[in-house]
Simulated assay, not measured.
Amino acid sequence: MGISRKKVYEEIADLIMKDIRDGVLNPGDKLPSITGMAEHYQVSSASIREALNTLSVMDVIEVKHGQGSYIKARMPLGFEHEFEIITRKDIENLLDLRKIIEVGCVELACSQAEEADLKKMQDALDKMRTAVMNNELGEQADYEFHMAIAESTGNQMLIDLLGNVSEKMIETMKETRRIWLYEEKKSIQKIFDEHQAIHEAVEKRNVKEATGAMLSHLEEVASVLLTRHDG
């Protein structure tokens, strides 16, 4: 299939998604049994289970215990683009913009954030924690966390700047989380920990720690996304 980096279950997940896009599989269709799919694709049952789990987390299929796996009636936003949701240049430009704006925002947040702002950040973190526990992507909570930091500055221009790229931010957040679901050494938990570190630094009003944590987080996101978009 020409994608050497992908693991077996990624390949299977992509083949199933291609069948959905091509109309071979349709909304509401029941997928074959795990054993049947393992025989069809000539892979292990474990690889099929991992592929189905990934598709379930991505909201492409619904696993009904005791009944089987079914194609969702409505596909998630951006599904038709698979992992290439936006171009590499878009990603580079967006992440450069986020570094410039968000490192500055978190610096201001250390002096400007009020208790209500800190609570908004904590609420978003709580949503992220729930997503981790439920093995969900949690990209909306991710976005809410970063916007809460911008809003805490009280600078409407900064808030508007981030708001203007909100759609692309959410797309890249979702893509980062999808990719990390495919990596054994990284997980959604790691993203949560990075956000928690940012929040704790803002709570302590520690500018150096907060800006360092934000920059580190955004550079990690850039590394994950751009590595995936290489080649």
Results as ranks from 00 to 15, higher is better:
residue 149 I to D: 13
residue 149 I to H: 14
residue 210 A to C: 09
residue 105 C to D: 12
residue 185 K to L: 09
residue 179 I to R: 07
residue 39 E to F: 08
residue 157 M to V: 12
residue 31 L to Q: 01
residue 156 Q to V: 11
residue 76 P to E: 03
residue 162 L to M: 05
residue 92 E to Y: 07
residue 23 G to W: 06
residue 87 T to Q: 15
residue 138 G to I: 12
residue 176 T to D: 04
residue 114 E to L: 10
residue 173 M to W: 02
residue 26 N to M: 13
residue 202 V to D: 00
residue 138 G to P: 12
residue 64 K to S: 07
residue 187 S to Y: 05
residue 177 R to N: 01
residue 80 E to R: 15
residue 128 M to T: 09
residue 132 V to S: 01
residue 46 A to S: 13
residue 69 S to V: 11
residue 209 E to Y: 02
residue 145 F to M: 10
residue 124 A to L: 05
residue 58 M to V: 02
residue 14 D to C: 03
residue 191 I to Y: 12
residue 99 K to P: 03
residue 196 Q to K: 15
residue 89 K to H: 12
residue 181 L to G: 00
residue 1 M to S: 15
residue 204 K to D: 10
residue 170 I to S: 13
residue 21 R to S: 13
residue 188 I to S: 10
residue 200 E to R: 08
residue 55 L to R: 09
residue 37 M to C: 09
residue 125 L to K: 07
residue 64 K to M: 06
residue 99 K to S: 06
residue 119 K to Q: 11
residue 177 R to A: 03
residue 116 A to M: 12
residue 65 H to C: 01
residue 91 I to S: 07
residue 43 V to Q: 02
residue 34 I to N: 10
residue 2 G to C: 06
residue 92 E to F: 06
residue 147 M to Y: 12
residue 68 G to Y: 04
residue 49 R to M: 04
residue 186 K to D: 07
residue 51 A to S: 11
residue 62 E to S: 05
residue 99 K to W: 01
residue 53 N to W: 08
residue 26 N to G: 00
residue 110 C to A: 01
residue 154 G to D: 05
residue 188 I to R: 12
residue 212 G to F: 07
residue 112 Q to T: 05
residue 47 S to C: 06
residue 130 T to P: 01
residue 82 E to T: 15
residue 87 T to I: 09
residue 116 A to P: 05
residue 182 Y to W: 02
residue 63 V to E: 07
residue 2 G to E: 12
residue 155 N to D: 08
residue 11 E to G: 09
residue 100 I to T: 14
residue 52 L to I: 03
residue 154 G to R: 03
residue 228 R to N: 12
residue 140 Q to N: 11
residue 104 G to F: 06
residue 209 E to A: 15
residue 203 E to M: 14
residue 207 V to T: 14
residue 209 E to Q: 14
residue 184 E to F: 08
residue 164 N to L: 07
residue 184 E to Y: 10
residue 5 R to S: 14
residue 200 E to N: 11
residue 75 M to D: 10
residue 217 H to R: 07
residue 75 M to Q: 15
residue 14 D to P: 00
residue 192 F to W: 11
residue 217 H to D: 01
residue 19 D to A: 13
residue 185 K to A: 10
residue 146 H to N: 14
residue 76 P to A: 06
residue 44 S to Y: 01
residue 200 E to D: 14
residue 70 Y to C: 03
residue 193 D to Q: 14
residue 68 G to Q: 06
residue 221 V to N: 08
residue 190 K to L: 10
residue 216 S to L: 10
residue 43 V to W: 00
residue 194 E to H: 13
residue 198 I to N: 04
residue 163 G to I: 05
residue 203 E to W: 03
residue 46 A to F: 06
residue 186 K to H: 08
residue 193 D to A: 14
residue 186 K to E: 08
residue 147 M to P: 00
residue 57 V to R: 00
